[in-house]
Simulated assay, not measured.
Amino acid sequence: MLFSRPPNVLTIAGSDPSGGAGLQADIKTFSALGAYATSVITAVIAQNTCGVARVEPVSATMIRTQLDNLLDDVAIDAVKIGMVTSREVAETLAAGLAARRPRWIVLDPVMVAKSGDRLVDDAGLAAVRDILVPLADVITPNLPEAAALLGRDTPRSAADMEALLDELAALGAPYGLLKGGHLAQARCPDLLWTPHGSRWLDAPRLETRNLHGAGCALSSAIAAELARASTTGELATACPEPRVESAIEAAKQWLHAALAAGERLDVGQGKGPPHHFHAWW
Protein backbone atom coordinates (compact mmCIF):
# COMPACT_ATOMS: atom_id res chain seq x y z
CA MET A 1 0.00 0.00 0.00
CA LEU A 2 1.38 3.43 -0.93
CA PHE A 3 0.97 6.49 1.24
CA SER A 4 0.68 10.01 -0.09
CA ARG A 5 1.22 11.83 3.19
CA PRO A 6 4.60 13.29 4.13
CA PRO A 7 6.35 11.25 6.83
CA ASN A 8 6.32 12.47 10.43
CA VAL A 9 9.80 12.61 11.93
CA LEU A 10 10.76 13.40 15.53
CA THR A 11 13.93 15.03 16.81
CA ILE A 12 14.89 14.57 20.46
CA ALA A 13 17.65 17.09 21.06
CA GLY A 14 18.97 20.23 22.70
CA SER A 15 18.42 23.75 21.38
CA ASP A 16 20.63 26.19 19.51
CA PRO A 17 19.58 29.87 19.42
CA SER A 18 21.77 30.44 16.35
CA GLY A 19 19.73 27.87 14.43
CA GLY A 20 22.67 25.93 13.04
CA ALA A 21 22.70 22.87 15.28
CA GLY A 22 20.49 20.80 17.56
CA LEU A 23 16.72 20.98 17.50
CA GLN A 24 16.50 23.91 15.12
CA ALA A 25 18.85 22.35 12.57
CA ASP A 26 16.96 19.07 12.74
CA ILE A 27 13.63 20.76 12.06
CA LYS A 28 15.12 22.60 9.08
CA THR A 29 16.60 19.37 7.73
CA PHE A 30 13.35 17.42 8.03
CA SER A 31 11.47 20.24 6.34
CA ALA A 32 14.00 20.60 3.52
CA LEU A 33 13.70 16.88 2.79
CA GLY A 34 9.92 16.75 2.68
CA ALA A 35 9.17 15.43 6.17
CA TYR A 36 6.89 16.92 8.80
CA ALA A 37 9.01 17.89 11.82
CA THR A 38 8.10 17.27 15.45
CA SER A 39 10.37 17.75 18.47
CA VAL A 40 11.12 16.94 22.10
CA ILE A 41 13.64 19.25 23.77
CA THR A 42 16.23 17.74 26.15
CA ALA A 43 18.26 20.82 27.05
CA VAL A 44 18.18 24.57 26.65
CA ILE A 45 21.63 25.61 25.44
CA ALA A 46 22.99 29.14 25.32
CA GLN A 47 25.32 28.95 22.34
CA ASN A 48 26.22 30.65 19.10
CA THR A 49 28.57 29.96 16.22
CA CYS A 50 31.58 30.67 18.45
CA GLY A 51 30.85 28.39 21.40
CA VAL A 52 28.62 27.17 24.22
CA ALA A 53 27.97 29.48 27.19
CA ARG A 54 25.58 27.38 29.28
CA VAL A 55 23.57 24.15 29.24
CA GLU A 56 20.39 23.73 31.27
CA PRO A 57 19.00 20.18 31.06
CA VAL A 58 15.25 19.62 30.87
CA SER A 59 14.03 17.25 33.58
CA ALA A 60 13.50 13.60 32.70
CA THR A 61 9.88 13.93 33.80
CA MET A 62 9.26 16.79 31.39
CA ILE A 63 11.03 14.94 28.58
CA ARG A 64 8.86 11.85 29.12
CA THR A 65 5.73 14.02 29.28
CA GLN A 66 6.65 15.70 25.98
CA LEU A 67 7.34 12.33 24.36
CA ASP A 68 4.21 10.57 25.60
CA ASN A 69 1.99 13.51 24.75
CA LEU A 70 3.34 13.58 21.20
CA LEU A 71 3.16 9.83 20.62
CA ASP A 72 -0.41 9.73 21.97
CA ASP A 73 -1.41 11.93 19.06
CA VAL A 74 1.03 11.70 16.13
CA ALA A 75 2.17 8.60 14.23
CA ILE A 76 5.96 8.96 14.10
CA ASP A 77 7.79 7.23 11.25
CA ALA A 78 11.37 7.91 12.35
CA VAL A 79 13.21 9.40 15.31
CA LYS A 80 16.53 11.19 15.50
CA ILE A 81 18.10 11.32 18.98
CA GLY A 82 20.72 13.95 19.62
CA MET A 83 21.88 15.42 22.92
CA VAL A 84 21.20 13.28 26.01
CA THR A 85 22.36 14.89 29.23
CA SER A 86 22.18 12.08 31.81
CA ARG A 87 21.60 8.41 32.47
CA GLU A 88 18.12 9.19 33.79
CA VAL A 89 17.22 10.87 30.50
CA ALA A 90 18.61 7.96 28.48
CA GLU A 91 16.55 5.49 30.51
CA THR A 92 13.47 7.69 30.16
CA LEU A 93 13.84 7.88 26.37
CA ALA A 94 14.49 4.16 26.05
CA ALA A 95 11.37 3.31 28.04
CA GLY A 96 9.18 5.77 26.17
CA LEU A 97 10.36 4.72 22.72
CA ALA A 98 10.30 0.99 23.49
CA ALA A 99 6.65 1.24 24.54
CA ARG A 100 5.59 2.48 21.08
CA ARG A 101 8.64 1.94 18.96
CA PRO A 102 8.82 3.93 15.72
CA ARG A 103 10.08 2.03 12.68
CA TRP A 104 13.42 3.84 12.59
CA ILE A 105 15.67 5.32 15.29
CA VAL A 106 18.81 7.22 14.30
CA LEU A 107 21.22 8.15 17.09
CA ASP A 108 23.77 10.94 16.79
CA PRO A 109 25.88 10.52 19.95
CA VAL A 110 26.36 14.25 20.56
CA MET A 111 29.10 14.76 23.15
CA VAL A 112 31.34 17.58 21.94
CA ALA A 113 30.31 20.76 20.12
CA LYS A 114 32.19 21.94 17.00
CA SER A 115 33.74 24.59 19.25
CA GLY A 116 35.29 21.82 21.37
CA ASP A 117 32.93 22.32 24.32
CA ARG A 118 32.05 19.08 26.15
CA LEU A 119 28.27 18.68 26.31
CA VAL A 120 27.79 15.55 28.46
CA ASP A 121 29.50 14.10 31.52
CA ASP A 122 30.95 10.59 31.84
CA ALA A 123 27.70 9.15 33.20
CA GLY A 124 25.77 10.55 30.26
CA LEU A 125 28.31 9.13 27.83
CA ALA A 126 28.03 5.67 29.40
CA ALA A 127 24.24 5.88 29.25
CA VAL A 128 24.29 6.69 25.53
CA ARG A 129 26.60 3.73 24.92
CA ASP A 130 24.82 1.18 27.11
CA ILE A 131 21.17 2.18 26.71
CA LEU A 132 20.58 4.12 23.50
CA VAL A 133 23.07 2.62 21.03
CA PRO A 134 21.44 -0.86 21.31
CA LEU A 135 18.04 0.77 20.77
CA ALA A 136 19.10 2.52 17.56
CA ASP A 137 18.92 1.24 13.99
CA VAL A 138 21.65 3.63 12.82
CA ILE A 139 24.33 5.52 14.76
CA THR A 140 26.50 8.31 13.34
CA PRO A 141 29.56 8.97 15.56
CA ASN A 142 32.40 11.19 14.47
CA LEU A 143 35.93 10.18 15.40
CA PRO A 144 36.10 11.85 18.86
CA GLU A 145 32.65 10.48 19.71
CA ALA A 146 33.60 6.95 18.62
CA ALA A 147 36.76 7.15 20.69
CA ALA A 148 34.76 8.35 23.71
CA LEU A 149 32.21 5.57 23.34
CA LEU A 150 34.96 2.94 23.30
CA GLY A 151 37.44 4.55 25.68
CA ARG A 152 40.07 4.67 22.93
CA ASP A 153 42.34 7.29 21.38
CA THR A 154 40.82 9.31 18.56
CA PRO A 155 41.58 7.67 15.19
CA ARG A 156 44.12 9.51 13.06
CA SER A 157 43.95 7.44 9.87
CA ALA A 158 41.64 5.28 7.79
CA ALA A 159 43.38 2.23 9.22
CA ASP A 160 42.62 3.44 12.75
CA MET A 161 38.97 3.83 11.77
CA GLU A 162 38.81 0.28 10.48
CA ALA A 163 40.39 -0.97 13.69
CA LEU A 164 37.46 0.45 15.70
CA LEU A 165 34.73 -0.97 13.52
CA ASP A 166 34.17 -4.36 15.17
CA GLU A 167 33.96 -2.78 18.62
CA LEU A 168 31.55 -0.13 17.44
CA ALA A 169 29.30 -2.68 15.76
CA ALA A 170 29.41 -4.81 18.93
CA LEU A 171 27.75 -1.97 20.88
CA GLY A 172 24.48 -3.07 19.30
CA ALA A 173 23.38 -0.82 16.44
CA PRO A 174 23.01 -2.87 13.22
CA TYR A 175 23.95 0.07 10.97
CA GLY A 176 26.42 2.86 11.54
CA LEU A 177 28.41 5.57 9.86
CA LEU A 178 31.81 6.38 11.36
CA LYS A 179 32.47 9.89 10.07
CA GLY A 180 36.04 10.69 9.04
CA GLY A 181 35.83 14.45 8.74
CA HIS A 182 38.33 14.96 11.57
CA LEU A 183 41.13 13.24 9.61
CA ALA A 184 43.85 15.61 8.41
CA GLN A 185 43.67 14.77 4.72
CA ALA A 186 42.22 16.01 1.44
CA ARG A 187 39.31 13.57 1.47
CA CYS A 188 36.56 12.91 4.03
CA PRO A 189 36.14 9.13 4.15
CA ASP A 190 33.18 7.77 6.14
CA LEU A 191 33.03 4.10 7.06
CA LEU A 192 29.62 2.45 6.78
CA TRP A 193 28.86 -0.81 8.54
CA THR A 194 25.85 -3.09 8.09
CA PRO A 195 24.89 -6.52 9.43
CA HIS A 196 26.68 -8.04 6.42
CA GLY A 197 29.85 -6.04 6.06
CA SER A 198 31.33 -2.59 5.68
CA ARG A 199 32.42 -0.20 2.95
CA TRP A 200 33.83 3.28 2.49
CA LEU A 201 31.75 6.27 1.45
CA ASP A 202 34.23 8.86 0.26
CA ALA A 203 33.78 12.56 -0.48
CA PRO A 204 36.09 15.48 -1.24
CA ARG A 205 36.82 17.86 1.62
CA LEU A 206 35.17 21.24 1.27
CA GLU A 207 37.08 24.35 2.29
CA THR A 208 34.38 25.95 4.41
CA ARG A 209 33.85 27.33 7.89
CA ASN A 210 30.15 26.44 7.73
CA LEU A 211 30.36 23.23 9.74
CA HIS A 212 28.28 24.20 12.77
CA GLY A 213 25.66 21.48 13.20
CA ALA A 214 26.81 19.37 10.24
CA GLY A 215 26.54 16.18 12.29
CA CYS A 216 23.04 17.10 13.47
CA ALA A 217 21.98 17.73 9.89
CA LEU A 218 23.42 14.44 8.60
CA SER A 219 21.72 12.24 11.20
CA SER A 220 18.44 14.11 10.71
CA ALA A 221 18.72 13.70 6.95
CA ILE A 222 19.20 9.96 7.38
CA ALA A 223 16.08 9.79 9.57
CA ALA A 224 14.08 11.81 7.04
CA GLU A 225 15.25 9.64 4.12
CA LEU A 226 14.40 6.43 5.98
CA ALA A 227 10.97 7.75 6.94
CA ARG A 228 10.27 8.95 3.42
CA ALA A 229 11.24 5.60 1.90
CA SER A 230 9.05 3.75 4.42
CA THR A 231 5.93 5.85 3.90
CA THR A 232 6.17 5.63 0.10
CA GLY A 233 6.58 1.86 0.18
CA GLU A 234 10.13 2.00 -1.17
CA LEU A 235 11.72 0.29 1.82
CA ALA A 236 10.83 -3.40 2.04
CA THR A 237 10.98 -4.53 5.66
CA ALA A 238 11.97 -8.06 4.65
CA CYS A 239 15.23 -6.81 3.16
CA PRO A 240 15.96 -3.29 4.40
CA GLU A 241 19.73 -3.19 3.97
CA PRO A 242 20.04 -1.82 0.42
CA ARG A 243 17.51 0.91 1.19
CA VAL A 244 19.18 1.82 4.47
CA GLU A 245 22.44 2.25 2.60
CA SER A 246 20.64 4.32 -0.03
CA ALA A 247 19.14 6.55 2.66
CA ILE A 248 22.57 7.14 4.19
CA GLU A 249 24.12 7.89 0.79
CA ALA A 250 21.30 10.30 -0.10
CA ALA A 251 21.71 12.08 3.24
CA LYS A 252 25.45 12.47 2.65
CA GLN A 253 24.87 13.93 -0.81
CA TRP A 254 22.31 16.39 0.55
CA LEU A 255 24.66 17.49 3.35
CA HIS A 256 27.57 17.93 0.94
CA ALA A 257 25.43 20.30 -1.14
CA ALA A 258 24.28 22.12 2.02
CA LEU A 259 27.88 22.60 3.13
CA ALA A 260 28.92 23.82 -0.31
CA ALA A 261 26.06 26.34 -0.29
CA GLY A 262 26.82 27.55 3.23
CA GLU A 263 28.87 30.43 1.87
CA ARG A 264 25.63 31.98 0.62
CA LEU A 265 24.65 32.58 4.26
CA ASP A 266 26.03 35.20 6.64
CA VAL A 267 25.38 33.79 10.11
CA GLY A 268 27.71 34.53 12.99
CA GLN A 269 31.42 35.15 13.38
CA GLY A 270 32.53 31.60 14.15
CA LYS A 271 31.67 28.32 12.48
CA GLY A 272 28.59 29.08 10.42
CA PRO A 273 25.83 26.58 9.56
CA PRO A 274 25.21 24.57 6.41
CA HIS A 275 22.52 25.95 4.09
CA HIS A 276 19.67 23.56 4.92
CA PHE A 277 17.38 25.08 2.28
CA HIS A 278 19.96 25.29 -0.50
CA ALA A 279 17.61 23.51 -2.92
CA TRP A 280 14.71 25.85 -2.09
CA TRP A 281 16.13 29.38 -1.77
Rank of each mutant, 00 (worst) to 15 (best):
M1Q: 12
M161C: 09
A148D: 12
R101N: 06
V55K: 15
I12V: 14
L107D: 06
L107K: 04
A37T: 14
I41M: 14
R156N: 03
A146L: 08
L97A: 07
A186V: 08
A279S: 11
L97F: 08
G272N: 05
R228Q: 15
A53Q: 15
P144Y: 11
A186R: 14
L10M: 10
A126W: 00
D108K: 04
E207Q: 14
C239Y: 15
A90E: 04
L119Q: 05
H182S: 12
A78K: 09
M62K: 00
A173R: 00
A203R: 11
T232C: 10
V52N: 07
L192W: 02
G14P: 05
R103H: 07
S31I: 01
V106S: 14
T194W: 02
Q253Y: 00
P242V: 08
A227N: 10
A53S: 15
A136P: 06
G19W: 04
E91D: 13
R156D: 06
V9H: 02
M161Y: 14
V120G: 03
I139Y: 02
A90G: 10
T85R: 14
R129Q: 06
I248Y: 02
W281H: 15
L211Q: 08
V74G: 00
P240H: 07
Q269L: 10
L192M: 13
A227E: 10
G176P: 07
S18W: 03
L93G: 03
M111A: 10
R101E: 12
K80N: 12
A13G: 06
D121W: 05
F30R: 09
E91Q: 09
L168E: 08
V89N: 04
S157Y: 13
T11H: 04
R103I: 00
A126E: 09
T194N: 04
V133K: 02
N48W: 01
A227R: 03
R264L: 06
V138E: 00
P141C: 08
L206N: 01
R264Y: 01
V44Y: 05
L192Y: 05
K252S: 13
C50L: 15
E145I: 05
L164K: 02
Q24M: 11
R209H: 09
D73L: 03
T237C: 01
K252V: 02
A184V: 07
